[in-house]
Amino acid sequence: MTRHPGAMSNARRPKLRKFLQPGTLLVAFTSFATLLASTASAEVIGKVILQDYRGATATPNGQPDTKPIYYQDQVSALDTVQTGEGGATSMQFLDETRFDVGPNAMVKLDDFVFDPMSTIGAGKISMAVGAFRYVGGKMKSDENVKLVTPTSTMTIRGTELVIFVGIDGTTEVNVVDGAIDVQVCNKAEVVPATIGQRVIIPPTCEASVTVARPVPEDLAALDVPDDLGDFSTAAGGDDGGEPGGGGGGGGDNGLDRDRDRSREQPDSPPDAGPAPDSEPDPDTGGGGGSGEGSGCEGGDCGDNL
């Protein structure tokens, strides 16, 4: 039997052409692109630089497992970082930006990209609750970094910020260095602030600008102030709170209940008041609660005596 290699080759070609049909290539390319996107979503964006472990954890996006993050551990895009009571951590991103996280905090590291050759990059960090310090690094395009809270979106320019986010969403941004533009809630309104100023955005989305409060250098002292929204009450603090605890929606606290009690107290003396008046009048049978007793209080008692 004589074999013809050319004929065998031709017999295989239809199968090859069928495999390389445009639709098949498109599906293969789409699957590959999806794989790349999935890999990029877990891209490393920084590391932990706090040497002492203080209870910070990270949860990768869509994963049920939460892991502690120690000194030099990597953090990735879409990680959710949390701290508990007395907890804290400090991270350094790709351009040497430093990001401190205080106790009782939650933040999602949405993304952070940086090209060391061009020093161009971008990022997004979403702070849900807690105290944070952001110190910009080498990125020239830091206006592309967005810092997001429940009531604001911040655009930064060469900035060092101390940010407090209350559990009711109240946000306070203290500008230690540089400048920021704050978009209030979902409004088109943008509030600028520069060094030495702070912007306060309550849940009502009525922003105000005032003098920055003194902020601690020590990471351990970086905590949400007691006078910021409902944070202290909702976090398990003293429900009576301090009188200043009504900033941006925190007015419904122990102070208001004390006021309610003070309103009730003037009504109690009239209930006991008729008793002394009823003793000198035996004809009324000591009826302190009767209508006649009430009339005596009205001024007729003097005429009867």
Rank of each mutant, 00 (worst) to 15 (best):
P116T: 03
A88Q: 14
A37H: 03
N304V: 09
P68N: 03
D181R: 11
R12V: 07
F93T: 11
R3P: 01
N10G: 00
Q74M: 11
D267R: 14
T210L: 10
T153Q: 12
P116C: 11
P266A: 10
E217D: 15
L26M: 03
I45K: 02
G121M: 05
A234Y: 06
A220Q: 06
V211D: 14
L20I: 08
G250N: 10
T30S: 13
K146H: 05
M91L: 15
S262Y: 09
S9L: 08
G23T: 08
V135C: 01
F29Q: 03
G236L: 07
G287W: 01
S9M: 05
L255P: 02
K187I: 00
D271P: 00
L78S: 07
R98V: 12
Q51K: 15
G158D: 06
L16Q: 14
V107G: 04
P68L: 00
V165H: 00
G121L: 05
S290E: 07
G121I: 08
C301N: 12
E279R: 13
L78I: 00
L109E: 02
D65C: 00
R98Y: 01
P282M: 04
K47H: 02
A122Q: 06
R257S: 13
P14V: 02
P282F: 08
G244W: 12
D260V: 11
D95S: 13
V27D: 06
I167Y: 01
G302R: 14
A122Y: 01
I49C: 01
T2R: 09
F19M: 13
T119A: 11
A207W: 00
P103C: 01
N61E: 10
I167Q: 13
A77M: 06
I120H: 08
